[in-house]
């Protein structure tokens, strides 16, 4: 085996290959009903877009962006739903499912008896969450373009942004899953996720909130994600969006580090 002779030179390659084998395992678990669950996940943000963006939007009319530009309400809501979809896609794999695999079915114990390392399991699961998130994002931007809520070129630019959002939330989700103790805690996570979904500048700009609340909202990861995607969608990018990207990258790095360390500590004791 080459890996035994040249461990230093190709250890990184081995790492990505081993992480990929974890992703591949998830792919082989797809069964009929779960396929539908997985793919139909894109439906949720679409339904919200039509109900709130289009339905309630008819009662609202236009809305003014912080940059001063005026856009239709659906145009305002759509990018936020895209960011939220990227978040949901990533979190659904890395919280509930990840926790179950780690603590409940002891799947990772079996994998760790092979050359695969904890951090590689984390990376493999994250890659899987990305695949899932990307399916949702692609479906959603297609709908946005069809409804004339953005242009095709901007839609293409939004896809890498949704990947970054997915990585950041996926890493965060895994880190949280290594910390929580019981299934009941997922009720809390779901409530927190829903609060983020409602108040991260998704349906109304936080400019109307009291100062403290507004400051709080603006440091949440979903707000930064919405800000990034909305700027790309409406073509109003600036320096603030560089900050969004840096924020999400830092979150991803932090989440992965915590998740990898804590997995190692819990599984290899």
């Amino acid at each position: 085996m080459v890996t035994l002779v040249l461990p230093r030179l190709i250890s990184f390659e081995g790492m990505s290959r081993r992480a990929a084998s974890v992703t591949e395992r998830n792919l082989s678990t797809l069964r009929s009903a779960y396929w539908v669950v997985l793919v139909s996940g894109f439906l949720e943000p679409v339904l919200y877009l039509f109900s709130i963006g289009v339905g309630v939007g008819a009662l609202i009319g236009d809305i003014r962006l912080p940059s001063g530009e005026v856009v239709g309400y659906a145009e305002f809501v759509a990018p936020a739903m895209l960011a939220a979809a990227a978040m949901t896609g990533a979190l659904s794999e890395t919280t509930f499912n990840f926790f179950g695999k780690m603590k409940f079915v002891r799947l990772y114990e079996g994998i760790l008896a092979t050359p695969v390392r904890p951090i590689e399991i984390a990376l493999g699961e994250l890659a899987w969450a990305m695949v899932r998130g990307l399916i949702y994002s692609v479906a959603f931007v297609v709908i946005m373009v069809l409804l004339d809520l953005t242009t095709a070129a901007r839609a293409l630019a939004m896809l890498p942004a949704t990947l970054l959002i997915g990585i950041a939330f996926g890493a965060l989700g895994m880190a949280v899953s290594t910390i929580i103790r019981s299934w009941q805690d997922f009720d809390l996570i779901a409530a927190g996720q829903f609060a983020l979904f409602l108040f991260s500048g998704t349906f109304v700009p936080p400019t109307g909130y009291p100062a403290v609340l507004r400051w709080l909202v603006e440091v949440t990861p979903l707000y930064r994600s919405v800000d990034l995607v909305r700027a790309l969608s409406t073509g109003t990018t600036g320096w603030l969006q560089a900050l969004d990207v840096a924020y999400l990258l830092a979150l991803a790095a932090l989440g992965l580090t915590v998740a990898g360390r804590r997995m190692e500590r819990q599984l290899c004791k």
Binding site: I52, V56, L59, I60, I63, F194, A195, F199, F203, V204
Partner: peptide
Amino acid sequence: RSSALTTLVMPLLVMLGFGVGVGAYVE
């Protein structure tokens, strides 16, 4: 206790988010 969260907090969030938040823009 755990179900109280979903039965009380979630509807309250919806009321604040949509009723108060979005409502402010419905003239």
